[in-house]
Write a protein that binds this DNA or RNA. Structure first.
Length: 304
DNA sequence: AAGCTAGACAACCGCAATAGA
DNA sequence: CTCTATTGCGGTTGTCTAGCT
């Protein structure tokens, strides 16, 4: 479909944002709200592409942003979700309130991907189990700040030429719920079990879903149904490698194909998209193919 | 101290999906 | 139904920083 370029590139600022630009954008959005990104720069007096403004806002300027200090729990969840979902960073980010897909993507590419790759090569000879955006060298030097962002403070100010360039990070919630495989796997969970978090995972849930027991986050009610019936502690305890074996059985999937000696569980990529595209989880779609999940869960499968 | 290199991450690019006229 | 604008997403690039030589 034909599209005009999002903006003329002539005369526009590029590169790092200055504090002044950030303030301008923040103030404009405070007054006028989000949206209409194409016209925003002109109206706000910014020499930026609308797309750039949107990205800056979503990734950095939004108020409910959690920057850096990715906890061990979050890291573990990222790894598992990546195993389940692949490079669907927005989906993964949607499971981690306060985190943006960009941050998670970067974190994966710089830390987890390498670490995970190392583990894979050590424990799993199948290189297709997990795909990363780019090949990772084997001489991994695991970052010393693994589990904690390199940024020592939430707001890192750097000098770039004569501008005060602000490096911040923003939050975007994905609207897409997690795959109902999970829901089916936990059929007895209370509908709002995410709010009725078990005691042993309380801190974790508070960390991941601060809105779940507080005032509902206005911007994404789907969060309350993101996990639907599942409990995050269960999520963290699942062996997604097994789950993903049947979730991504689509023939063109670049990873995660079921082993040949298994009964193939035909949950296709299309189905997954159906699930993730709808707010209502179509558990009935999965039900016939989900038989292995409960046994998987009951088996107390090994953690990654 | 200077230069080099790799890591970290912010920002950009291009495409696809979606909305709405 | 078609077309265009808008938004969202993942991959990639660019730049800064820290560590090493």
């Amino acid at each position: 479909m034909g599209r005009s370029p999002c903006c003329a590139k002539e005369g526009l600022n590029r590169g790092a944002w200055t504090a002044q630009e950030d303030n301008t954008l923040r103030e404009y959005i405070r007054i006028h709200g989000e949206g209409k990104w194409r016209n925003l720069p002109k109206k706000a007096g910014l020499k930026r592409c609308g797309k750039s403004c949107r990205l800056r806002w979503l990734n950095y300027l939004r108020p409910d942003i959690k920057r850096g200090n990715i906890s061990q729990d979050e890291e573990e969840l990222i790894i598992r979700l990546h195993k389940l979902l692949g490079n669907r960073w927005s989906l993964i980010a949607g499971r981690l309130p306060g985190r943006t897909d960009n941050e998670i993507k970067n974190y994966w590419n710089t830390n987890l991907g390498k670490k995970h790759q190392t583990q894979q090569t050590r424990t799993d000879p199948d290189p297709n189990l997990c795909s990363t955006s780019k090949p990772v060298p084997n001489n991994i030097k695991v970052s010393s700040n693994t589990g904690a962002c390199s940024s020592p403070s939430p707001l890192k100010i750097m000098n770039s030429h004569d501008h005060d360039v602000i490096r911040t990070k923003a939050f975007r919630c994905s609207k897409v719920p997690l795959t109902p495989v999970v829901l089916q796997a936990q059929p007895n969970k209370h509908q709002h079990s995410i709010n009725n978090k078990p005691a042993e995972s309380g801190a974790l849930m508070d960390e991941f879903f601060p809105f779940s027991c507080q005032e509902e986050d206005h911007q994404d009610h789907n969060h309350s149904s993101i996990f639907g019936d599942i409990c995050l502690s269960d999520l963290l305890n699942w062996d997604f490698s097994d789950v993903s074996d049947f979730i991504f059985s689509d023939n063109n999937s670049n990873d995660l194909s079921p082993s040949s000696d298994q009964q193939p569980l035909c949950v296709s990529e299309e189905m997954l998209q159906d699930w993730t595209a709808s707010n209502c989880v179509q558990t009935n779609v999965v039900a016939p193919n989900i038989q292995g999940v409960s046994s998987l869960l009951n088996s107390g499968g090994e953690l990654l």
